[in-house]
Design a protein around this nucleic acid. Structure first.
Length: 463
RNA sequence: GCAGCUGUAGCUCAGUUGGUUAGAGCGCCUGGUUGUGGUCCAGGAGGCCGGUGGUUCAAAUCCUCCCAGCUGUACCA
């Protein structure tokens, strides 16, 4: 006899989740809105697959400590490493490099899809999530960077947010490089310094100062080592965050385009640097300004929902010439999470009619009713679950069905149907406390002629 | 990766200085009602107290190690 086999646990790997109906329908709505605005700005759709060769995805980071860390990778039959994409920009760079001769430049494409990151999940951060990217390949001028930001602002507005609900901040990597030159910050420390600056909104001015110099303790008491700059260097960086200077050609181009728009919340903020090393010029980031709660009802710090910038060197790593490129990524899931709480997206549930199965002998009649409803685009189902009418109505309640149709022998003989407006019944129940009275009232229920089925049902649904 | 906290019923949690049969609310199921949802009433099913090893006459409770989850932080292409 073998030992008893262990049953598998019905759990998901950490960082993955199932999505319920509401989340999906909000996401559909959000995705559709984003897509429409992009098309409106002249973007066309491209789809690339989930897997890419590992080396095609990564390695363009000069500061990689862990070359394959954070990526889900497997070896295929030929022992070649392939990986799930961790963003949509790297696959785009591959696509452009591969099809450079054939694509029309400037190349403007958008893409929506899941990306995967093999790293520790946090609140609101999963290992699989949806991104929406819009990129422009082949335009040098920062006019186009501004246009991307305007487009994001329009997406937010179309999603029902006003300029008080979001903020798009922009800056430029070059003005920081100039400062690092002036303050004698060595090249090999620059990415560490940029990452420290990037944390301003979480740790504040003093937090950044600590990170730049001696280090900082986190909430649990754990110590983070600092960059080791002098107090003077740190101070000049902190001052620059507050009054960074804008004398930069790209910023002028950017703002020139922007001057055509008055009511969009798009502002200069030197502290936006983005942690990534591949950005070469303009960088931007969008955040939501309203409160977002976690599932325990506590306010959470909700980071950026979109970000991007110019990455002029990304395509040349495939052995081609430098190609000017810029793009923006929207974190669709985070946006959905926040918008769900705002409750201003109309995603009311589809109505559902349940045909109560009084007597399976009458099945053919129920199928006829169902067909009639379905042919009129009214979602309905025949109940097959339980014999008992009480149970079936309870099920209708739990399903949040709008109507129950009761057709037993009595009704069918007379050529009538009993239809029950379930939400009206809920209202009536508030005024009844005796169970006999409730039962007798047949709340929300009316008898109709068989041929009036569709018109009567529509009348109730449209309320 | 590092640090802090937490693991008891499907969920949220209580469980005294270690003490005998481990509880509550909600949810679920059944009945009151074999043709009527809600409320109400009665009853019921759910537990290797995260795992392992120890201390003890005795462990959900104390100690060791492991595992998992949460939070912060690092990394985030």
């Amino acid at each position: 006899m073998k030992k008893e086999q262990k049953n598998p646990k019905a759990v998901l790997p950490k960082g993955f989740k199932d999505n319920d109906e509401i989340t999906i329908s909000v996401r559909k709505k959000v995705s559709k809105t984003i897509e429409e605005v992009c098309q409106n700005f002249g973007f066309r759709e491209l789809e690339t697959p989930a897997f890419e060769f590992t080396d095609a995805l990564g390695k363009f980071l000069p500061d990689i400590d862990r070359p394959s860390g954070g990526v889900f990778s497997i070896q295929d039959e030929d022992n070649q490493w392939i990986s799930l994409r961790y963003d949509l920009t790297a696959p785009l760079a591959r696509f452009v490099a591969a099809n450079y001769q054939n694509i029309v430049k400037p190349f403007k494409r958008y893409q929506s899809g899941n990306v995967w990151r093999n790293e520790k999940p946090g609140p609101g951060r999963y290992r699989e999530f949806r991104q929406f990217d819009a990129d422009v390949i082949g335009v040098q001028s920062a006019n186009i960077d501004a246009e991307l930001c305007v487009m994001v602002a329009k997406i937010f507005e179309k999603l029902g947010l006003s300029s008080k609900d979001y903020r798009i901040k922009y800056s430029n990597r070059m003005i920081w490089n100039d400062l690092f030159n002036e303050t004698d910050i060595p090249l090999n420390q620059i990415s560490e310094v940029l990452r420290a600056i990037d944390k301003l909104d979480r740790f504040g001015e003093n937090g950044v100062r600590e990170l730049l110099t001696t280090g900082r303790k986190d909430q649990s008491g754990d110590v983070m080592s600092g960059v080791g700059l002098s107090d003077e260097q740190a101070e000049s960086i902190v001052q620059f965050i507050k009054n960074g200077n804008k004398s930069n050609e790209q910023i002028l181009d950017f703002e020139n385009y922007l001057s055509n728009f008055q009511n969009l919340s798009i502002d200069f903020d030197p502290s936006v640097v983005r942690g990534l090393d591949y950005y070469t010029g303009m960088v931007f980031e969008a955040e939501l300004l309203f409160k977002v709660k976690n599932n325990k009802g506590l306010d959470i710090v909700f980071g950026s929902v979109a970000g991007g910038g110019r990455y002029d060197k990304l395509i040349s790593r495939f052995g081609k010439e430098d190609v000017p490129a810029t793009g923006i990524s929207i974190g669709v899931d985070r946006l959905v999470y926040a918008l769900k709480q705002r409750n201003n997206l109309d995603v009311s549930e589809n109505p559902l009619v349940v045909i109560v199965n009084m007597n399976n002998e009458n099945l053919n009649e129920y199928v006829k009713i169902a067909e009639e409803l379905r042919n009129n685009n009214i979602p309905c189902e025949i109940s097959f679950g339980s014999q008992n009418i009480g149970k079936q109505l309870k099920y209708c309640d739990k399903r949040n069905a709008s109507i129950a149709i009761i057709a037993g022998d009595e009704e069918l003989e007379k050529g009538v149907l009993s239809i029950k407006d379930l939400s009206a019944g809920k209202e009536i129940s508030k005024q009844i406390s005796e169970r006999d009275e409730w039962k007798e009232s047949k709340a929300g229920q009316i008898n109709i002629e068989r041929q009036d089925l569709i018109s009567s049902v529509l009348k109730i649904i449209k309320k």
